[in-house]
Amino acid sequence: MQPDVWDVPGAQWRPVDARLARVRLINLYLVCVPLAGVAALLAVWWWGQRFAWLIAALALALLILRTVAIVRAVKVWAYAETDEHLLVRHGIWTRRLSIVPYGRLQYLDVTADPVSRVYRLATLVLHTAAATTDATVPGLSPQAATELRDRLAEVSGARTEGL
């Protein structure tokens, strides 16, 4: 990744675990492949084979696009802890940077879906009093997630600024 304007001075960006891409792809395929299969069968039944091929090709193209998007998105997803804030940046189609002051944290969630658990990855979600706050750090090892959560809880407790 080339040095870019999105960088924040003093931020030590840490990437999320690259295996997150695998988790997300498995989750995608677990839903999409059976769905596509059923759709193709129904299409054959109603409209005949040629139409089914068309649908299958379309579905495959979408799936490939999505796969590329997931792989690239995981590569750019990064977070940084500074003295005062947690920074999260992600997104390739829409680029996003979130800055959350520690003092504004209301609570933190650590979650892991079944596939993530197989790969021993967890997601940390930061909540402030604003519903629009969008700060999610996926692809952390469970102990890294717990450590980060405890660290954040500690600094936010020391700095609570209320609403």
Binding site: L97, V100, A131, D134, L163
Partner: peptide
């Protein structure tokens, strides 16, 4: 509560971005 900068694909074509101030 928090601050976000977002830049959609279309915005990026023109080098523009949006700043959000998240409030309760």
């Amino acid at each position: 509560q928090s601050v976000r900068v977002t830049q959609g694909r279309w915005e990026r074509l023109f080098g523009l971005a949006t700043v959000h101030a998240d409030i309760a």
